[in-house]
Design a protein around this nucleic acid. Structure first.
Lengths: 357, 357
DNA sequence: TTGAAAGCGCTAACAA
DNA sequence: TTGTTAGCGCTTTCAA
């Protein structure tokens, strides 16, 4: 170590000591001085300990704990161009199924030294642009989005920043970014096949809002196409779209029932809407599945406890969250490309469907 | 601008262009050169636009959009010692009530230019230490924790980093850090008063796990103390503690019913356990509230739709999340101290309680 | 109002 | 294996 170097360091520390007296936060330099090594060695002990001799490693580590050293993520990120954070942009946290996916995503990240930044888009494509921009500015090493319906600016931002991004929940051939999800359309397709097989000819749907939501759209299309394939009526009055609340489900049923020739079976865009339908049916004295068959989507934990237990589609939310994190982590570790993946979303036959009366 | 300065800048840009060819990410320097101003001016336009002349401001802004400039959060944070991020450490995201609070917290942060980092502690105090450390390393400007039960190391970390922290959900006199929550004990206290007023003498509880969880503990203590105050039996066999699932609620009821002189009313640590109790009662042919009174805690959206509708405590989760973010934001903006606050958690009398048979 | 320049704390070539 | 040193991209005095 040169005399100049030493002087520089002392000067710095002295200054810091004087200025920031209230909080003394040791830096690599402080550790280096205390352990009698260079800052490079301290950095090595922190990042690739195997490249440092046992002796110095222990010495440095001792000083790290003695001084309560905490590396500065900002400095680290700036110097290494890696923040060890990943971002998630989700439509809402008030949907248990997304919360579960996010939780699984976070768990896998945390286990690997990464931290998750999350922002909620509220299904608003315009706001989402700002969210994505902000996450990229924050330097996230990767991004998780929901679905493939996004504003052009979002794609541009991802493209120009070269930030690895993956879309979850959906499925599509040749997606612009890797996709880890399931086939929403195929799922509701199977539901309708089941219903028709039971003898239903008048099938309705309380769908989620499909505008700007490719998952909801796919679920609705699955129902429509299958109905047509079976040669059944598929008019718009058999379809209502509703946001995400139990009351919306109730309203949905009320509207469907308002027309002549009401449906004998109702496919729902998600379990919350399905439960709303069940509640409304109950209050109207309609028995399920006797008077009305109902099918949900998501397999929320509560649905199996309902009476009758809700027939639904099991969405592998935790598996998707975990797999997404792992794919990202691999990619970041050694460049492994992130591969799209289609998860099974099995039909769970329970007690809310039966042959029409 | 000196010739030396210009040369330095050109040299840098040229180097960057050559090296990172695949991704060209403009920096303040690029903007400065393009707009014919200094980097200081670019920085000013970005951070305190009013201190720059209209002319230069427009010029810089034009270049910013033209070149698609995104500031580097890491560099910003390193230079300014402010990351414009806040951290949240929560026990779980799979509890709708926490998810709601986190969502509200995030919304308020995002509206003010901040980004949220979240980690899930899984109710593990040891893991929580690492999570808090990591968030502080990431440079969060503030921290939100749940409750006041934390490992000493967590307090030490907060203390030595001087990172502003606030605890939510609980309530305590002279807390070590500001507390935005409600009186958990007072709430269950009111519940027991109600039940006793109805004539119940044998009151049981399916509590959440109280170990390391001050909220669950307060709720249990509220029940125990009130029972004693009324001179009623309060033995341990009237209390079971369970994790957070419907099945746990079912198991809780089964255990309570297994003893002679089973309770005629059951107070639950949360709505999920309460619903589990209701499901189990239904399957056993017990009518609610005829044979058994049940009270929950949280006021999950679904509870009002159940039949009978669940009597519960309304937890102001969104209000807490929002208020916490706002308090933090104020503090960060102008040093306003963060004040503890007790929110009302009103008793919601619905249909699951009645006089004992 | 604007610019020059010194860092913020760390990593990563490059040298030794 | 270890040290030297030049930045990473920005903010922020200090001068002008």
């Amino acid at each position: 170590m040169t005399a100049a170097g030493r002087t520089g360091i002392s000067a710095r520390r002295a200054r810091r000591r004087r200025h920031n007296h209230p909080v003394f936060k040791p830096t690599v330099e402080d550790i280096a001085v205390a352990a009698g090594v260079s800052t490079a060695t301290v950095s090595r002990v922190l990042n690739k300990p195997d490249s440092v001799s046992q002796f110095l490693r222990d010495k440095v580590r001792a000083e790290v704990t003695r001084l309560g050293y905490l590396p500065s993520g900002a400095a680290r990120a700036l110097a290494s161009n890696r923040s060890h954070t990943a971002g998630a942009v989700i439509p809402t946290l008030n949907n248990a199924i997304f919360a579960t996916a996010v939780a699984a995503f976070e768990a896998a990240l945390t286990n690997n030294g990464y931290t998750m930044l999350v922002t909620v888009s509220s299904y608003d494509h315009i706001h989402e642009i700002a969210h994505v921009r902000r996450l990229i500015e924050r330097g996230v090493d990767a991004l998780m989005l929901v679905g493939l319906d996004h504003h052009d600016d979002v794609w541009r931002l991802i493209e120009s920043s070269k930030c690895p991004a993956v879309a979850i929940w959906g499925h599509q051939d040749n997606p612009p970014i890797p996709c880890l999800g399931f086939d929403n359309a195929a799922a509701t397709c199977g539901v309708v096949d089941h219903l028709v097989g039971l003898g239903h000819r008048r099938v309705g749907m309380v769908a989620g809002v499909t505008e700007g939501n490719d998952r909801a759209r796919a679920r609705r299309q699955g129902v429509e196409e299958t109905l047509r394939r079976h040669g059944l009526v598929c008019t718009s009055r058999r379809f209502v779209e509703k946001p995400y609340s139990h009351q919306d489900g109730r309203d949905g049923l009320s509207e469907l029932l308002a027309h002549g020739e009401p449906p004998t079976a109702i496919v729902c865009g998600n379990d919350v809407l399905a439960m709303g339908v069940m509640f409304e049916a109950r209050d109207r004295g309609l028995s399920i599945p006797g008077d009305l068959s109902v099918v949900g989507f998501d397999n929320l934990p509560i649905t199996e406890h309902l009476s009758p237990a809700l027939t639904t589609i099991d969405v592998p939310s935790a598996a998707i969250g975990t797999a997404t994190a792992e794919a990202i982590l691999h990619h970041l570790a050694d460049g492994t490309p992130i591969a799209s993946r289609v998860f099974p979303a099995p039909f769970l036959l329970r007690q809310t469907t039966a042959a029409p009366a």
